[in-house]
C-alpha cells in the first residue's frame, strides 16, 4: 500500500500521479496499480514516469473504469502498488534518440533523466508526437538536449537519426513499427511494448508476444525488446 501525494490532470484525459515509494526503480519498469476491491477485477499496469527521492510518478491516460478510478484518487488516499516489474531499458551509453507517441512518452521521461545523470557528456535528442494536444513536453526540454514536437502529423516524417545513436521508442504500435523501419539497420532500436496483462509477473501468459526466440512475456521478459527480436523490421 502506498500513499498518494498528488494526482492531477495535466491535459484532457491525461493524469499525473505521484505516490510515496521506497525501492530500486529502473526506467522502463512498471507497477500494477489498484485502488478498488474486485471491480474492476484486475490491477492496471502503469509504467514509471519518474522516480526521485522516494517519489514515484505515473503519467497515465484515462481509458476505462480502472484508470478513471485512479484519476479520482485524492492526496493522502491509499493505492496498492505491486512492483517494480519488468526489465526496463538497458543502461545506454553513447548518444540517445528517443521517440515517443501519445501516452507512450510516459516511460521515456525517466529514461532521459536517468541517461542524463549517467552520461553527462552524452547527447540526448527527443521526438514527441501527439494526435491533438501536447503534454509533458517541458519536462523533456529540461532533461534533453533537443526536443522535436509533432502534433497531428506523423512523427517519423521528421525523424533523423545520427550514426551511432541508440534509438528508444514507445507509443502506438503503428508508430513504433514505422520508427523501426526508418531507422538504419546499424542503429540499435529498442521498443517498449504494451499488452493486456492479468498478473504482470509472468504467470497468466496473457501478454505473450512472438519473438525470433519463440514466445516471450511482455511483462517479465520485456516490456523492452530489440526491434528485430519482435519482428518490427
Amino acid at each position: 500500500m502506498a500513499v498518494v501525494l498528488s494526482n492531477e490532470f495535466v491535459s484532457r484525459g491525461i493524469c499525473r500521479m505521484t505516490v510515496a515509494f521506497k525501492g530500486d526503480v529502473l526506467p522502463g519498469q512498471f507497477f500494477m496499480l489498484r485502488a478498488w476491491d474486485k471491480d474492476p477485477l484486475l490491477s492496471r499496469p502503469i509504467s514509471v514516469h519518474d522516480y526521485e527521492d522516494g517519489k514515484l510518478t505515473f503519467l497515465y491516460q484515462v481509458v476505462g473504469k480502472g484508470t478513471e478510478m485512479l484519476s479520482r484518487l485524492t492526496p493522502q488516499s491509499d493505492v496498492t502498488l505491486q512492483g517494480p516489474l519488468g526489465n526496463g531499458f538497458p543502461r545506454i551509453t553513447g548518444d540517445l534518440c528517443v521517440v515517443g507517441g501519445g501516452i507512450g512518452i510516459a516511460p521515456l521521461y525517466y529514461l532521459v533523466k536517468n541517461y542524463r545523470k549517467h552520461n553527462p557528456d552524452g547527447k540526448c535528442r527527443v521526438y514527441l508526437g501527439f494526435r491533438d494536444v501536447a503534454y509533458g513536453v517541458e519536462d523533456f526540454e529540461q532533461a534533453a538536449d533537443e526536443v522535436n514536437l509533432d502534433i497531428g502529423g506523423i512523427i517519423t516524417d521528421q525523424l533523423q537519426v545520427a550514426s551511432g545513436e541508440v534509438v528508444v521508442t514507445c507509443g502506438p504500435e503503428v508508430m513504433m513499427k514505422s520508427v523501426a523501419k526508418v531507422v538504419p539497420a546499424e542503429n540499435r532500436v529498442y521498443v517498449s511494448l504494451e499488452a493486456h496483462m492479468a498478473c504482470g509477473i509472468g504467470a497468466c501468459l496473457g501478454c505473450t508476444c512472438a519473438t525470433k526466440y519463440g514466445n516471450r512475456k511482455v511483462c517479465q521478459d520485456g516490456p523492452v525488446f530489440l526491434r528485430d527480436e519482435v519482428f518490427y523490421v
Binding site: 477485477l41 496483462m197 492479468a198 497468466c204 501468459l205 496473457g206 501478454c207 505473450t208 514466445n215
Partner: peptide, 30 residues
C-alpha cells in the same frame, strides 16, 4: 500449468478480456 505432449505456442491475438468481476482468457494451453 496445463501440459501437453508437444510444446504449444498458444493462441494468437488478444488473450485476455476483463468483464464485470470476471476475466475471459484465450491462452490456448501455451
Amino acid at each position: 500449468k496445463g501440459l501437453t505432449l508437444e510444446p504449444k505456442p498458444g493462441n494468437s491475438g488478444i488473450r485476455l478480456w476483463e468483464t464485470p468481476a470476471g476475466l475471459m482468457n484465450s491462452i490456448g494451453l501455451e
